[in-house]
Design a protein around this nucleic acid. Structure first.
Lengths: 529, 529
DNA sequence: ATACACACGTGAAAC
DNA sequence: TGTTTCACGTGTGTA
């Protein structure tokens, strides 16, 4: 089973990476999941960084939605996914994701299928600290201990003190396997109960362990032919020049985990051989050392020292830089996941909004602490005095809010930003200090109250007061919300609310939106270069 | 004094930028601070962006730590300071900054020295909105008014209504000067009391005003020799070819503030002339258009159209990219400023720490809110022990809501089905004919309005009227809904609503919301075809 | 000497 | 069409 790793036929028929700079990790995991039975629901490769563990998610998606492997992490990150072959049934995949994402309120989240999907999609945003991970996270434990972890519902899956195992169990995972490799942990999950399988672990270890060190390959593949591996250039993961260059420096990269993939083998020849499987043309990419003349320049055995050394260092450099970018992007996604109201979707505004959000949180904490302090004082006062004190205080608080709202209504709509945007929804926003008054007028259908409230919740705007009345098929809503500092602009607030309202409004057009996205996704992927 | 700007000897002896892509702004400011006496503690150039004002901090650092000028903005971000001459004592400088940044909690911030340093280091993170900056921020006022501001402790420094001036005064700044230029405001600060110096202002204006527009140079420097400036290539900030290229397109960059430095003059010749001062070798950098043959290729007047056009667009591209990087870096500094305990001075770990910090803040807020809730409950219990539980709550509701609730309170609680179910949610339902009144009382957290509305939407109950008010961490909602015939039973209706209110796994909802945002980002990124 | 982190220019892609 | 954002490869300084 483990001879599949570098067998010529499998490697030539499997790989279809149109981009020669794509690390072979993706392809290897893809191949691994292809060679696995269908009961693996997902596979995550947790790459061990120098300070944390972030996951590269490969979905097997064998539970009916998508049968194949898929790396969705670059899809979540960027729209440039030209390294991957187009999956065969992307529509159902996207639909699955979107139905999972969009109807967060309406659908049955407790469904086992959705729950499982939810679990592993959310795994993307998790990062585990290596230092503190030995007790809390399962991949961290597997990595630090170096031992295979095979948990299923019969054996310590729900009783494991690792919170990830418990979470997986709660989300319908019956079997959870963590296989440590040299530079990461492969985590496999299934909704079936799968007994322990040592061959799988060995295959994974040899496959992913060979990513860094080509030397243990002859040891770990007992009955394969290394002569062919080194003779035939067309079937190896890399040609001999690179292999030799890697072999020269492997002794000092075993102990250093942070140089985990700097000698990651380039798959130039594999790409060349496998092109055309999905109809990819050999695009003339700008790097010049991966063409045919370069191969003739690299293949000479003697005097290969100079090109081997001359090309090895920038190759590692390129790879390291790639990984650095990837890690930084993962951090960006993590930050984007925890920061609400990312106004514009670019990195700079994400950072700016994160700063604003942090400041808002700080001020909120301050306010809450002062309130707690005040509450304690009033509590003491209440305990000392009668209960009428609290009544008065409550009424006073009530009056203050009412005063604010009345002042807002008394000052008329001279500077309100009103907009009637097509489909019968009018939104007015007035910002006054830390609060804003939102007035939405729409038709009564399609539960406008729920839509507005959900929109406000998505924006994390606390509702101070709301009143919705409906007159004659017209629904009028007035909401006073507390707004964070970053949304003080009326225009931004209004557009944000309106976007959420219209997005929810097109509940039926959600599928259309999905089609859009999937079409775009299709075109992005089918147009790889 | 102001003839120092473009005097050949000074420019040739000053500049030592080994990297030809460095914009000349840095060098100009560096030169400016070098030419200044030592009592200027710091200098910030506030660049006017399209949406904010961010500072480029040049430290004079004359107070004992570092005697020289230093642009610390890229140094806080990266360790690569190869554009700048290596400062003589970078170690102490870095140590000073690090000790300043790291122990923001522990050390004696109130020390005057540290305080001043802290002030101008923190100035890096400040951004002033141009629109609202005319009253609040000093650089904004200087920029919009276009007039020089020279404040010291004798004159309106602490009495200025600009908060930056007050802040500077509180941090030990005795003199604060803001000099507006075409594309930014130079702010100088000193801990000494410095009388007004018009020559300095003029020097700054001519020096920095010539950065973008070479044309107003003869106007702003009255007694300098522009002939020499345009004749001798070796002493000008750029050669004539570039100057001409800038002149060709200056008419449309005056009105557009966002393209403020897109024609920033490249300092090829200066670099060539100044190399070797600090022992930098002329590294064969990969860009080929900055060597000697390129200058001969650019200087021809005729047929210069094609290289002028053919190189103008990538030049703008390069400049735009530079600005983008600069902006992003400034956002990074801002983020670094608000996140404490940034373990390593790395971008990736900064992002990771920011995520952790945000999560910590969120959990702290949650905990505080729950504590407030608990305090309130105990408070209520204390009140209940003395008075009747329900009466108080009903009176609270009575005070907050409008006349409609008075009718409900008049009809007492004899047939309403009220339920207090654990987690602070109370639901009352009264069925009257084809409508029902639902009253939900819960804590304010977790968006109860959205939850109730979504619950009603799931039950397909049309909302006729709703009013939600929030009193002191308590949210009271009154909804009048239209009910179908099969839900006429109050108990069934109440239990259905309650189940939907309670049934939502909050954590999943929150995570789903996060993921929704993330996916929304993806969705917006992938264009709707 | 090597890994790492950053900036830079450039091509491509999306509004 | 132009503006802007992003990723990539590369050069370089620092630890």
């Amino acid at each position: 089973m483990d001879d599949l790793i570098i067998s010529p036929s499998s490697s030539s028929s499997l790989v279809s990476l149109p981009h020669e700079t794509q690390p072979s990790l993706h392809q290897k995991l893809q191949f691994l999941l292809h060679s696995q039975p269908e009961w693996w629901v997902y596979a995550i490769f947790w790459q061990i960084s120098n300070d944390d563990v972030h996951g590269t998610l490969f979905l097997s998606w064998a539970d009916g939605h998508f049968n194949g492997t898929k790396d969705i992490s670059p899809r979540l990150s960027s729209s440039s996914t030209h390294h991957y072959p187009p999956p065969p049934d992307r529509a159902t995949f996207i639909n699955g994701i979107h139905s999972l994402i969009n109807d967060d309120e309406t659908t049955n989240i407790c469904n086992d299928l959705h729950d499982t999907e939810w679990f592993y999609v959310m795994s993307l945003t998790r990062t585990f600290s290596v230092s503190s991970s030995s007790s809390s996270s399962l991949p961290g434990k597997a990595f630090t201990s170096g031992s295979l972890l095979w948990l299923n519902s019969e054996r310590e899956l729900q009783f494991c003190n690792c919170e990830r195992a418990k979470e997986a169990y709660l989300h319908g995972i019956e079997t959870l396997v963590c296989i440590p490799t040299n530079h990461g942990v492969l985590e496999l999950g299934s909704s079936d109960l799968i007994p322990e399988n040592w061959a799988l672990a060995q295959q994974v270890k040899s496959l992913l362990g060979s990513d860094l060190n080509p030397n243990p390959i002859p040891k770990q593949q007992p009955h394969n032919n290394p002569i062919q591996f080194f003779d035939n250039h067309n079937i190896s993961f890399a040609d001999i020049g690179i292999i030799a260059g890697v072999q020269e420096e492997e002794q000092e990269e075993d102990d250093k985990s942070q140089s985990r993939t700097r000698a990651r083998i380039r798959t130039d020849k594999m790409e060349q051989r496998s092109k055309g499987k999905f109809g990819y043309a050999d695009s003339d990419h700008s790097d010049s050392d991966c063409n045919n003349p370069s191969i003739e320049k690299r293949t000479p055995k003697k005097r290969g020292r100079k090109p081997g050394l001359g090309r090895e260092t920038p190759l590692n450099h390129v790879e390291a830089e790639r990984q650095r970018r990837e890690k930084l992007n993962h951090r960006f996604y993590a930050l984007r996941a925890v920061v609400p109201n990312v106004s514009r979707m670019d990195k700079a505004s994400l950072l700016s909004d994160a700063v604003d959000y942090i400041n808002g949180l700080k001020s909120k904490i301050e306010e809450l602490e002062s309130q707690i302090q005040k509450d304690k004082e009033t509590n003491n006062n209440n305990n000392n005095s009668s209960s009428s004190n609290k009544r008065v205080k409550l009424e006073m608080a009530d009056n203050t809010t009412d005063n604010q709202s009345t002042t807002t209504t008394s000052t008329e709509d001279q500077q309100t930003t009103s907009s009637s945007s097509g489909s019968g929804i009018e939104v007015e926003v007035r910002v006054m200090g830390p609060e804003a008054m939102v007035r939405v007028q729409s038709e009564k259908t399609n539960h406008p109250g729920a839509r507005l409230m959900c929109a406000l919740r998505e924006l994390e705007l606390g509702v101070h007061h709301a009143s919705m009345s409906c007159v004659n098929e017209l629904m009028l809503q007035d909401v006073v919300v507390k707004i964070p500092e970053q949304l003080r602009c009326e225009e931004k607030l209004k557009s944000a609310i309106l976007a959420r309202l219209m997005g929810k409004k097109k509940q039926d057009a959600k599928e259309l939106n999905d089609l859009f996205k999937q079409l775009n996704y299709l075109q992005e992927k089918s147009k790889p270069i």
